[in-house]
Amino acid sequence: MADTAPEPSARAQQWARTMRGHVAEHGLVRAHAGSDARVGPGRTVDRLVREAYEREVLRPGATLAEGAGDRARPEEPDVERTCFERDRDRIVHSTAFRRLAGKTQVVVHPTDHQRTRLTHALEVAQIATSIARGIGVNATLADAIALGHDCGHGPGGHASEDAFDAFVPDGFDHGPWGADVSLADLNLCTQTLDGIRNHSWSRPAPATVEGEIVSWADRIAYCAHDLEDAVHAGIVRPEEIPDVVADVAGRTRREQLGHFVRAVVRAVEEHGEVGMAPDSAAALAGLRAFNYERIYVRPESLAQSRAVVVVLKALVEHLAAHPDRLPTTVVRTDDPVRDAVTYVAGMTDRFAFDLAVRELDWDRSRLPQGIDRDR
């Protein structure tokens, strides 16, 4: 007797009945039966209305979308979105942004609650937009820069920069690489690219106040969040946080984020410049120094970094010597080494490590290992 398909569940049947939505008396299709989501009369809030709102509301020194939108390849303005809203949408929908979900923030093979590059980018965006709204500048531009700021990172965290340094004449820096390589096809505005390129404190100052905000938001985010991950993993204990940090900004992620965000907003209010008062800045520096000593350069972390460098260098060398192994999606130049770096830098951790096993017969015991709890 022929098999018969099982009867769909009541839930599945209910879901199927919503396939076409719900038709109102006047023919409009609604998402919900009985919906009455109405708004008052008025024109659509299109790009021109939003640009006018920015002119009216944002404080002097803010970056206005009106008059911006300068891109490497000229484009007609969007009807609904400002140029920076358009940039933000392009970043969120990009392959480089999606791949951040599979890239290391601090440890490879993160557990359920440890950050990835993607969750870090989202948290930086939340902090940056909070600061930008608090001081009355362009939160959309800050959001776009923050979401894109780490798209140039390779697999395995900051160790990938050490691996790729050997192949890039001026060294590999994830900020410029993200702006000039990883996100180049998105044709983003120069203000967005500048903020992404220069978010690290070792780079030249960003050209906009929103880019400067993201520089602070990035440091605030990774200091507080990396500490929280380390506490959850049993690497450090909250009571070990130095007094210079705890007495000013607290011992929990919530306390620290609240304090540091308010500190930047207060600095702008008092001085008209993005920064922090000395006591808050010292607390943030103390937190970063504590993380550096207790998390980033602990023996297990350094072992992980060394393993990342070795495997990524081997992949680049192999692919540069065998450019036929690069997929057709890689934009070719006359430099096979750079092409190989471009390909490997775009990989997620898992893809890179699996490729090393397949292509190089890499011993899995030599791959970067996750950091176990209570080591």
Rank of each mutant, 00 (worst) to 15 (best):
I145H: 00
R47N: 08
L257Y: 01
D247R: 14
H318P: 03
R251G: 12
Q126M: 09
D78H: 10
C189S: 15
T140L: 02
T116I: 09
T111D: 14
L326R: 07
T252I: 02
C151P: 03
C223T: 12
E273D: 13
E240T: 14
S9Q: 08
W216V: 05
L193C: 07
L257H: 08
T63D: 01
A101M: 08
H22L: 09
E269N: 15
G178Q: 01
E51C: 05
L315A: 06
R50M: 10
R254K: 14
E25R: 12
T116G: 06
A205F: 04
L360H: 04
N291P: 00
T140K: 01
R364V: 15
A5M: 11
G148W: 04
Q191C: 11
D279E: 14
T63H: 05
Y222C: 00
R253W: 05
A16C: 10
M1D: 12
S160F: 06
E54I: 04
N138E: 02
L122G: 01
V236N: 01
A340D: 07
E359H: 05
A285T: 14
A281E: 14
R17A: 15
A249D: 01
A96C: 02
E317G: 13
A233D: 11
G258D: 08
P77H: 03
G286V: 06
T328K: 13
F84C: 05
Q256F: 07
T4C: 10
Q13C: 12
L319S: 02
I135V: 15
R20T: 12
T18W: 07
A221I: 02
T328I: 14
A121W: 00
A144K: 04
Y296S: 11
A16G: 13
V231Y: 00
F164Y: 15
A283N: 02
D143H: 15
I371W: 13
G152F: 01
T104R: 13
I213T: 06
D372W: 07
E123S: 12
P60C: 03
A16I: 15
T129A: 10
D247H: 12
L227D: 02
R358P: 05
V29T: 13
L312A: 09
T44K: 12
Q114K: 01
T119P: 02
S202I: 12
E359T: 05
H149A: 07
V49P: 01
R306F: 10
A282T: 12
D194W: 01
H149T: 04
L141W: 08
S200L: 11
T119Q: 04
Q304W: 06
I131H: 00
S35L: 13
